[in-house]
Amino acid sequence: MTVAQHIQYSHNGKVVHAIKADLGAIVLRNIGNTAVVNQPKFGVNGTFFNLQNGQLTGIAMQGGLAVHTNGSVNQGPCGIATKRGTMYCYNGGNAVTTGVVTNYSDTSLSNIKWAIGGYSLFPNVTYTQSAFYTAINGIGNASTCDAAKANSQNAYRFDPSINRPRTAIGWDGSKIWLAVFQSENAYQVRQFMINRGCNVAIMLDGGDSSQMKYAVVRNGNPSPMSYDPSNEQRGVFTMVAVEATDWV
């Protein structure tokens, strides 16, 4: 049996919806160019994608297979393969870690169940806000495909002054946390995950893509609810699904 729970928080005076779930309930799904909030399944939006060609620009693998086209590699601007924070569920689905990789196969982990790419939040590293942004933004011109950016996580969109809807996934050593933020910067998303006890966490696709489908238990039955902070019902291509057998 696997269990999941929806919890609503206020972080910095803004709404955060979270799902706390057993690791065994997590499955990566291809949902085509459709909205998470319109799915029959529960969960959040997954990794980044190119809306023009419908290909992923972040890793999304389930059972050794790409969830959607190009799901085995992290890419940055101009289609440059880029090292980015990627969460792996391995050891037959019993352990979780993150790495900064370009390709899904750039790891010595064994028996990988799933992997999802995004941007590193580094909750297990002590950072000031400025040092954190330097660590993930890299050095170089944010608007061009220069070599410095190609060798970083290309997180130039994480300007500390920019607050927007965000989605993140974390692991506290016992449970997976999925969170969708009404409007936040990357550093405060990191802080929220630290407050949940997560020692590994990454940022998933955000902005209009940020969406959550969750259950609220009423009279002993899970009733579907959704949270779409941009109210766009934007089509995305991957979903971190929560296929729990029970909601509490």
Rank of each mutant, 00 (worst) to 15 (best):
Leu51Gly: 09
Gly58Thr: 07
Ala60Tyr: 04
Arg29Cys: 02
Ile31Gly: 01
Asn50Arg: 07
Leu28Tyr: 06
Phe42Val: 08
Asn53Gln: 06
Gly63Cys: 06
Ser72Asp: 10
Val73Pro: 01
Thr57Phe: 02
Thr34Phe: 00
Ile59Asn: 13
Ala35Lys: 03
Gln52Phe: 08
Asn74Tyr: 14
Gln62Arg: 07
Leu51Val: 13
Val36Glu: 06
Val36Cys: 09
Val44Gly: 02
Thr57Cys: 04
Thr47Lys: 07
Val36Gln: 08
Gly46Cys: 04
Gly43Ser: 05
Lys41Asp: 15
Leu65Ala: 13
Leu28Ser: 05
Gly32Lys: 06
Gly46Arg: 02
Leu65Ser: 14
Ser72Leu: 15
Val67Ser: 08
Val37Pro: 04
Gln39Pro: 00
Leu56Gly: 05
Pro40Asn: 14
Gly32Tyr: 01
Gly58Arg: 09
Ala66Val: 12
Lys41Ser: 15
Asn50Asp: 14
Asn50Trp: 06
Gln52Trp: 00
Asn53Val: 09
Asn45Cys: 11
Ile31Trp: 02
Leu28His: 10
Thr57Arg: 03
Leu28Asn: 08
Val44Asn: 03
Asn33Lys: 12
Thr47Glu: 06
Gly32Val: 08
Val67Tyr: 11
Asn53Ser: 02
Asn33Val: 01
Asn45Thr: 05
Leu51Pro: 00
Val27His: 08
Gly63Ile: 09
Val73Thr: 15
Asn45Leu: 06
Gly58Lys: 10
Ser72Ile: 05
Asn70Tyr: 12
Leu65Phe: 07
Phe49Tyr: 14
Val36Ile: 15
Asn50Tyr: 08
Ile31Arg: 07
Pro40Thr: 14
